[in-house]
Write a protein that binds this DNA or RNA. Structure first.
Lengths: 124, 124
DNA sequence: TCTTGACTTGGAGCGCACTCCAAGTCGGAG
DNA sequence: CTCCGACTTGGAGTGCGCTCCAAGTCAAGA
């Protein structure tokens, strides 16, 4: 429906125009973004939805090269859903492990914070 | 009590010897690590405890430069506990925000996973 | 004494994910 | 027609956090 300039797409997605071009160059998009007659990129709703998925994968720490693999699978179309599922499941495992680790370290830091709060508190 | 070689300290802390030297060079340690007569580093229990704290801060995403600031405060000794507390509280806020973000993105990815699991499942 | 292996140093190199630059093109307003 | 601003490209540069290299030292064992 709507079709956005790169600046608008950047605003919508929270990425920079630089990053949007970089993602496209690096094979993270499902296909080349359409162009206006001027040569300027025109982002469709589908593009934005895909970028949102990429953003989710990146925000959870998936490396660019794995996002590229996932994009390649989706690009290849039906028939490799099991492979995509495997990739996402493996990623989920990594993220959950990471969340657990960070949470546990954070608890230890909280303990340290409690000590300082006690120290800094006005004397009784 | 015990005093460990850099290789042993690396094993204990889960860091590499390279990283241990790098942390020391970069001002992340509370003081220069002691040396044997050979010039080899000797890590004390206190060193290991401090490295554990550094590891926790790093594992929760604190940049090296902030760890250095924190180390400088601790090195300066008593009197700046409020400042250390501020630093840790600010860090905790960032980490919690980050955890929330990752968790929410992960939920969205889980939704995608559910779709694929449905697709991949044997036909009814 | 010679060799081995674990260490030392300053400094270079690397991988990642952007981020920016220079020079050029295009469409529209004045 | 001229100017402006938003875009285009290939390629270089940046910041971070390590990671490694080359050359040297030292202590202990054969």
């Amino acid at each position: 429906m709507t079709s956005l300039s790169i600046a608008e797409a950047a605003e919508q997605t929270g990425l920079t125009a630089h990053t949007l071009r970089y993602y496209e160059r690096d094979g993270l998009m499902l296909r080349s973004v359409e162009r206006a007659s001027s040569g300027h990129r025109r982002y469709t709703d589908d593009d934005l939805r895909w970028i949102q998925m990429v953003t989710r994968l990146r925000a959870t720490g998936m490396p660019i090269r794995d996002v590229r693999r996932y994009a390649a699978l989706v690009r290849d179309g039906d028939g490799n859903e099991a492979e995509r599922l495997d990739l996402l499941l493996a990623h989920r495992e990594v993220v959950e492990q990471q969340l657990a680790e960070v949470t546990s370290h954070l608890r230890a830091i909280d303990h340290k914070i409690a000590l300082y709060e006690h120290k800094v508190a006005p004397a009784p």
